[in-house]
Design a binder for these strands. Structure first.
Lengths: 231, 231
DNA sequence: ATATTAAATTGATCTCTGTCAGGTATTATT
DNA sequence: AATAATACCTGACAGAGATCAATTTAATAT
């Protein structure tokens, strides 16, 4: 029987797509011709919500923050690692502009694929289209889970979530160099910077984690997990 | 130039799919054979999160609440009117169970389509697949907008949202019989029943709406709109 | 090394909104 | 019609977390 999954505020999809494997050699060739590689430095904007959507992006290397913005408000939808696609929403011609912004968390290499070409690929290759549907669905499920967490968990739980998430999915180690500052963690977990500071201190005082200068170490993974589930 | 859309907590997709128009006559025939019609009464469960996903559902008539649940918590993702599909997530074979629950708000007629057959349709007909992709994308955009609202707007704004939404999209009239009770409105707008009551009273006192026995009338649409945008 | 800017921290306060508890009105049932 | 059961309403209270202001620490530039 399936283990019943708990929702976590975790944003980082651990999925990696292999959708291009479904293309024929000829399609792959054409893909090559209709693509360009672009490198982004930490903090650079990869695509901007509201601007014309001219291409679909494939993350070749790096880590990308995908977020919504309106006035001064921001909502991080997901953090996307390498081997994932960005901008798929605009496959739909109703969405002539990007529906979200994306930004490089650090050094990131993107392959831009012409959107008209991408649409042609979809029409011409149903197996490929099917794989894209799968990607979209995995995405929704993940964002929905995050939505659930944001509305039902309080800060303790969300903080625990993000620590676990960083450990499990990004750095794959219980001890890691913390590349995000307090402000970025706040954004990710949907709370204020001050609250992040206070919670991290509390977790430290309680012996759950150890934090130093830009580094974080999990001391009591199990207890964090419990907080994640009940907080 | 495009008017810049504001996010609203509005849940009701005004989209209606016509994806089946892309099928050949033969496919339509097969579709007929692989489908059954089911009628649901108000409050009945149409599909249950966590149960095996055996079919995709098409809403022929009615109104459906789609929501996530975990323990005692609930999150309404969207309200879906007729001519829309449910359960598309499970096109992806990774999701052998439904990822959300759905319930009839009132008398609803559903066409259940065998999921294996639906998958075959997708593989066999790229135009159809493309339309399904469009549906999924419209869906995500809507749910994301709602996510944004829930995290950034406070109760006043969300309350205004829902009143406008009911008026514009469901009953298509500024005066309507309120089919939802306070508890259901609370669920929809992500707040407690008491808060809903208080806000409705406040809106009434401020001359924004008129409420009577199970009915609601908008008196000052423009001011509601302003509250929706700034609240 | 010093100055300047940015990030992290801490404390105090304040507000929104949920919870609880107790009402009244409305609807359903016998 | 009487009773039971919901739904609706109101007030009091409390707690989570945001905001503001001030200080310390770290990072960067001169």
């Amino acid at each position: 029987m399936n283990k019943k999954e708990q929702y976590t505020g975790c944003t980082i999809s651990s999925n990696q797509t292999s959708c291009f494997e479904n293309l024929t050699d000829e399609e792959k060739n054409l893909l090559e011709k209709n693509s360009v590689r672009v490198n982004y430095k930490k903090g650079e904007t990869i695509c901007k919500q509201g601007s014309f959507s001219t291409h679909i992006m494939f993350i070749e290397k790096g880590l990308v923050k995908v977020y919504l913005e309106e006035k001064t408000n921001t909502l991080v939808l997901k953090i996307v690692p390498s081997c994932n696609l960005l901008g798929l929403t605009s496959i739909n011609e109703d969405f002539i502009t990007y529906q979200y912004s994306a930004l490089a968390y650090f050094e990131t290499e993107i392959i831009q694929i012409d959107i008209h070409f991408f649409r042609k690929l979809l029409i011409g290759n149903a197996v490929f289209a099917r794989e894209v549907i799968n990607i979209l669905n995995r995405n929704s499920v993940q964002v929905n889970g995050r939505f659930f967490c944001f509305t039902h968990k309080q800060s303790y739980g969300r903080m625990a979530d993000i620590i676990i998430c960083l450990s499990d999915r990004v750095f794959k180690n219980t001890e890691f160099e913390l590349l995000l500052n307090r402000n970025e963690i706040a954004e990710l977990s949907g709370m204020s910077t001050e609250t992040v500071v206070r919670l991290l201190r509390k977790f430290k005082d309680d012996g759950l984690i150890e934090t130093g200068n830009k580094y974080l170490k999990i001391l009591d993974y199990d207890r964090l997990k419990i907080i994640s589930e009940h907080g």
